[in-house]
Design a protein around this nucleic acid. Structure first.
Lengths: 206, 206
DNA sequence: CAACAAATTGAACGATTGTTCAATTTGATT
DNA sequence: AATCAAATTGAACAATCGTTCAATTTGTTG
């Protein structure tokens, strides 16, 4: 009966690696730091414990890859939202698209934010994770800084202020994201959007 | 020779508990999540592994107490800074004192922020930790909301806006705090103060 | 169909985890 | 000096941790 059943199925390394990364994110979302175990991840992925170290040199490398991939996915939705603006849209309107996307799924999702917090907590003591964090922060800041810079030029104001203003907007968004994740009842997405817009208006108008 | 040496020294339960909490914070600052182990904490405190569970029902209870104590200590420095303002100070000036204290030691300390991130990451899956987080957030928000409300009245504006504005300021401060902790070179304390003040001016002026 | 590279398994390893509890030591009380 | 509650110890426990590696299975190639 069970004689002919294959005991496992081969996959291309790239596919298997991707599946392991997905399983890592699932475990992180479900159990936080405690979900970050080789045995839990391999079970979630439906493979043996040994396979992870066949495809990744260490657990840390797997986590770093998961960090990179999650950031890429989220960042892409924000970039797409900005690109979805009409060709004739002003820079201010593109900023609106960015902020609206920020306070919507899949970005504003408690699961995702909880994964993120674990990454933050890891970034202190593991260089590999810290490097990923630096890169993701820089990428986010670059996008926002560009949008704010364009809007400043549009308002005929000095675009040199864009860098610090972008740090401020990033901080407010991160802070709102964090609080909304830890306790979604503190404020509504609408209120979050209003706060972010108030900051942008202050930057552009004052 | 060693015959007469005492093998341990008794302490009042309150003192011992306090020492264990301090050791927990030291271990957290030094090793992050990995420092959060009974054996590391007990070694840091110079006691045996068994003593922790004599004074605390579980490791989680100890961590929750450490969370509470650290918040209380930090919050007190901010409250003290506000109280240190001259009696004739305006509400706007008291807000200034708050912000300046926020961007100074002991508050703006990478060690402390890294401890905080671990607490955040724990708050998801352990009710005890989550309860502490809610309480500390509410306490911080209350203080800021009061200050902003006073400043709004001073500016003859509607104080009803204080609640949302306080959520916004808290978010920006948390975001700046976080980034400054994870990478102190992103911006200077002076720039952080300027950003927070820009937000307050927008709230009061616009 | 035989051969083979490599994807996969799973037992094993030594280290570490939080918690328990009987035994020991302390310091104040009588 | 004897008594005793309780603060403290540290061995023991069952789980779990990340990693290693010889053995097995797979799917493709010759």
């Amino acid at each position: 009966m069970t004689k002919g059943r294959r005991t496992f199925e081969r996959q291309l390394p790239a596919d298997r690696r991707h599946a392991l990364i997905e399983a890592t994110l699932v475990c992180l979302a479900r159990q936080g730091h405690e979900g970050l175990s080789i045995r839990r991840i391999s079970e979630e992925a439906g493979v043996s414990v040994g396979l992870i170290n066949h495809h990744f040199p260490s657990k840390t490398a797997l986590v770093a890859e998961a960090y990179r991939m999650l950031h890429e996915r989220l960042a892409q939705t924000l970039v797409d939202a900005v690109k979805a603006a009409p060709a004739a849209a002003t820079a201010r309107q593109r900023l609106d698209h960015y902020i609206n996307a920020f306070f919507a799924a899949p970005n504003l999702n408690p699961d995702i934010l909880h994964i993120w917090v674990v990454f933050w907590s890891l970034s202190r003591h593991t260089r590999e994770i810290r490097d990923v964090r630096e890169a993701t922060y820089a990428a986010s800041l670059d996008l926002i800084e560009g949008l704010i810079g364009d809007a400043l030029r549009e308002a005929e104001r000095d675009p040199a202020a864009a860098h610090l203003a972008a740090i401020g907007l990033t901080a407010m968004l991160d802070g709102l994201w964090l609080e909304s994740c830890l306790n979604p009842s503190t404020f509504t997405p609408t209120e979050g959007i209003a706060l972010a817009n108030a900051w942008i208006n202050a930057v552009l108008g004052g």
